[in-house]
Design a protein around this nucleic acid. Structure first.
Length: 905
DNA sequence: AACTGAAGCGTTTTT
DNA sequence: CGCTTCAGTT
């Protein structure tokens, strides 16, 4: 099975053809003049270390690249250099990244060097996408066909659940999800069923862990399917069992580059080592090493929990003897304050190779120190951050240059709520993924059934979606029949439609359904895939199902389906598209819109922003209690690296926050500032007065308005030696684990979020009680797409309503403010935090806010107006509050929306 | 087969 | 606290 890209076999070596030969390359490796006579333009502007990393093309190279030291630039320039020096064909370079984003960026940037010919780099991609590519070429060696399907987590869990039940085990006591995660963990470590430790095997399913794992693998094979982990496991198995295949790759790849090496797990490491560690046999029978270059930063290793082994990077020199190690320590991103703070923090870690970042930019009095801010609770934190953002915006800053980086995704909500209220554009990066939405998965399941009628899991998913009266009992019959005859469910369905086994009604339905699928499949070769896709959704009744759905999300889902079909246009065929979807679970974001980014610290790695807000620096949350409990010291160190990553995302401003009260599991807990705050150097840090809504404006040297938790001297000095701080420290010292909610759970069973879907057999789709929120977000999406369509920014900066709305809510928590979730406030303020409330707060702030309110126009809507909304259709206005309208929609029910999104009919 | 209420469950990070 | 899942009911 040869793939489409049978690139030219490497001849005796591309360079030899140019008369360069190994010697010439070795010369270049010693830093001598490059093979080209003219100094290549792409080399200018590199510092000496970067340049060395680019030009040391021969032999193993490890580049330890600190944050902001131009890692991506080195990587891409190195590839460009290899290509420009004709050391290898594009197809002879294997370049592996971790994320699709990184792969995309590399492609783009290499394209800039090479002049757009990115297609010529067939082996640049993520571990997984390259894994699939290899697996498709040799699938039969592990008992698969080359058109195998890739399971998503959902399919995986359903399948495991079936197996658990088949074993006669209690699927409540042994949850499928937990086992899916165990399997994942094993595969991350490169362990097949027979390799797993006895203890692990016993830990699940009354000691049947190993059997279950084996059964799962067998089932995958019979389904002609692979899960994510298999995309690496199978190639490893193939390489080991078939030296000829491996030799072929050895022969093919002249250069191997790996990005983010500190994040590789054992399986990836094994895969890589198989490919890179042997010598390559050249035509004239000489041994020539494959040139491997790994780039990484041990200080940014934050995926240990997922099986990443920092050891891989520490072990590099042993794995590849004679390796050149290059350190990139010159930081081009951040100010000296930010760098100083981050470096000082990370120096508290023991397990590191040790790098010292420096910058040429000296300490500039204009540069802001890293800020530490306090807030009473998370709501106030969000409010204050929102105000800071608006302030920056007023000074001309762009929202695109700001980001809020949180430890855990539940923190995002507060900010989203707040920004919706403010009318501040935001974008959640890495949130619920497009392809994980229910309607998208359903649609994809239809497509999979058409492209591959043997895809049982897809079939199962949609037999009764929309409801056709094919319930559990019918499906069970199908299963039995399929099993007895060793045929796929689709075929079984076709069979049963012709026999007497079923009652007339389901038989009829089944007959219709299978005929439809047969017809769609037959159209596959002749019909344009986007048209076919549309036809499938239309004729299956799937579109209609959502059209008839009166819930708030339905219109959005229909939009998503349209978007799905639109995006298919970029791909050549249905199978091609399905492959893309399986591997690339994220959808590109709309970058045209000026918006604040909200994301987790993990997904922020590799990005940079002028201003970074880092909320939630509290013990238990950050560092996360669970990391502490499960990971001990190394867990703490990983958290610290996460903090380091967070701070180093900032170019000019890093603003840290902690709150005194946070709601966890619906309960208010009082919290303690993160130990990481203590670990910051005073020189580069400014501790701010509680920057809540009543104290937040009068910053810096201002006299201070009354005692506060931080006390007056906290204003003028940037010291931690304040009573409040000491109190917090004392509290922490006395009580390590903050509280029950975080502490006591013995760690097992983690859950990922399931987006409101019941399983395959549970067709009743219930209304989520998050309708309101989703509706609010729907507004945002509407705005985004509108902005996209009209080509102009959706709306200017936040209008002046922010202040007014906060008015009454500022010092006192008002039970019914916001969206009806006003109950259950934290206890009344203590700790002298109320200082500003005593005298009503600083005057000029009041002034500002009042001015803001006055400047606002009267709403152009009034109660009773008939209006139209892009998502919710027609309705009548039930209430007006500022720019927010409560509208009774004819179809979608009552919603609160911003007036910008509706128009008078 | 589909709907409903009620109980119980988990609440970090994701290719 | 909010959400998912289950079990019992129609």
């Amino acid at each position: 099975m040869t793939g489409p890209d049978d690139s030219p076999r490497p001849p005796a070596g591309a360079s030899e053809r140019r008369g360069g030969g190994i010697a010439a390359r070795a010369l270049a490796a010693r830093g001598g003049p490059p093979a080209r006579s003219v100094e290549a333009g792409y080399l200018t502007g590199l510092n000496p270390e970067q340049r060395q990393a680019v030009e040391t093309t021969e032999g193993p190279v490890l580049v330890l690249a600190g944050a902001g030291t131009g890692k991506t630039r080195v990587l891409t320039t190195r590839i460009a250099h290899i290509l420009a020096s004709r050391l290898a064909y594009p197809s002879q370079i294997l370049a592996v990244t971790f994320t699709n984003k990184a792969a995309r960026e590399m492609k783009t940037r290499i394209g800039l060097f090479v002049g757009g010919e990115v297609e010529g780099m067939p082996w640049l991609g993520t571990f997984h996408s390259i894994g699939v590519k290899m697996l498709r070429r040799h699938a039969e060696l592990v008992g698969l066909k080359s058109n195998f399907t890739i399971l998503d987590t959902d399919d995986q869990i359903r399948l495991i659940k079936q197996l658990i039940q088949a074993e006669g085990l209690d699927d409540k006591r042994w949850p499928a999800r937990a086992f899916a995660q165990m399997i994942d963990g094993w595969k991350n470590k490169g362990l097949t069923p027979k390799d797993i430790p006895e203890g692990d095997a016993r830990a699940f399913a009354n000691g049947k862990g190993r059997e279950l794992y084996a059964a799962y693998q067998a089932r995958l094979t019979s389904l002609n399917a692979a899960d994510f982990g298999d995309l690496l496991m199978h190639p490893i198995a193939i390489f080991r069992a078939h030296p000829d295949v491996l030799a072929d790759y050895h022969n093919r790849f002249r250069y191997i580059l790996v990005d983010e090496y500190q994040d590789t797990n054992v399986a990836q490491y094994l895969w890589l080592r198989l490919l890179a560690q042997r010598s390559r046999r050249t035509g004239d029978d000489m041994e020539e090493p494959i040139n491997v270059c790994c780039v990484g930063d041990d200080d940014q290793s934050i995926y240990g929990w997922r099986g990443a082994e920092v050891d891989n990077i520490l072990r590099f020199e042993r794995d590849f003897p004679g390796a050149t190690v290059i350190r990139l320590e010159r930081n081009y991103r951040s100010t000296a304050h930010i760098l100083g703070a981050a470096s000082h923090l990370i120096a508290h870690n023991e397990d590191r190779l040790g790098k010292t970042l420096f910058t040429d930019a000296g300490i500039d009095p204009e540069h802001e120190k890293v800020e530490v801010n306090a807030a009473w609770d998370s709501e106030e934190e969000a409010r204050a951050v929102g105000e800071e953002i608006e302030q920056l915006q007023r000074k001309g800053a762009k929202l695109n240059d700001m980001a809020i980086l949180v430890r855990a995704s539940f923190q995002m909500r507060e900010f989203e709520d707040r920004f919706v209220t403010l009318g501040l554009n935001y974008r959640v990066v890495g949130g619920p993924r497009f392809y994980e939405r229910q309607e998208i998965r359903d649609a994809l399941a239809y497509f999979r059934c058409v492209a591959q009628p043997a895809d049982d899991l897809a079939f199962e998913r949609i037999v009764n979606v929309p409801k056709r009266g094919l319930g559990d009992s019918t499906v069970r019959l199908l299963h039995d029949h399929a099993r007895e005859n060793g045929i796929p469910l689709m075929a079984a369905a076709a069979d049963l439609a012709t026999t007497e086994e079923l009652k007339a009604k389901p038989r009829r339905t089944l007959d219709d359904l299978t005929r439809n699928f047969a017809r769609w499949s037959s159209l596959l070769p002749t019909t344009k895939h986007t048209d076919l896709a549309e036809m499938i959704l239309e004729e299956s009744g799937y579109t209609e199902m959502w059209q008839n759905d009166r819930s708030a999300e339905a219109p959005g889902r229909l939009d998503n389906l349209k978007e799905l079909i639109r995006s298919m246009d970029l791909y050549e065929s249905l199978p091609g598209f399905l492959e893309h979807v399986a591997l690339v679970m994220d959808a590109e974001q709309n970058v045209d819109l000026d918006a604040v980014s909200i994301m987790t610290l993990h997904s922020a790695k590799g990005l940079e922003f002028e201003t970074v807000f880092l909320p939630g620096w509290e013990e238990g949350l950050f560092p996360h209690q669970r990391s502490l409990d499960e990971g001990g010291r190394s867990g703490l160190e990983e958290e610290r690296r996460l903090a380091y990553v967070g701070i180093t995302r900032a170019k000019r401003r890093a603003k840290l926050w902690f709150v005194s009260n946070r709601r966890i599991h619906g309960l208010w807990q009082s919290t303690i500032p993160s130990r990481f705050l203590d670990e910051l150097p005073e020189d580069h840090v400014e501790v701010k007065e509680a920057s809540n809504s009543y104290g937040g404006y009068g910053r810096g040297g201002m006299g201070g308005y009354g005692a506060s938790r931080w006390d007056a001297d906290a204003f003028s000095t940037t010291s931690y030696q304040t009573p409040g701080w000491r109190r917090a420290q004392a509290a922490r010292a006395g009580q390590t684990a903050p509280d029950t909610a975080w502490g006591s759970r013995s760690g097992h069973k983690e859950r990922s979020i399931n987006y409101g879907e019941s399983g395959a057999s549970g067709p009743d789709v219930r209304r989520s009680s998050r309708d309101e929120e989703i509706a609010a977000k729907a507004d945002r999406y509407a705005r985004e797409s509108e902005a996209k369509a009209t080509g102009r920014p959706a709306e200017g900066p936040a209008n002046g309503f922010a202040g007014r709305m906060e008015r009454s809510g500022r010092n006192v928590y008002e039970p019914s403010s916001g969206n009806g979730r006003g109950s259950n406030r934290p206890p009344s303020r203590g700790l002298g935090f109320n200082a500003a409330a005593r005298d009503g707060g600083p005057r000029e702030i009041e002034g500002t806010l009042v001015a803001k309110s006055v400047a606002t126009e009267e709403s152009r809507f009034k109660v009773g107006d008939r209006v139209f909304h892009m998502k919710f259709g027609n309705g009548s206005v039930a209430a007006v509050e500022g720019n927010k309208l409560t509208i009774d929609f004819d179809r979608a029910g009552q919603k609160r929306v911003l007036e910008g999104f509706v128009q008078v009919v």
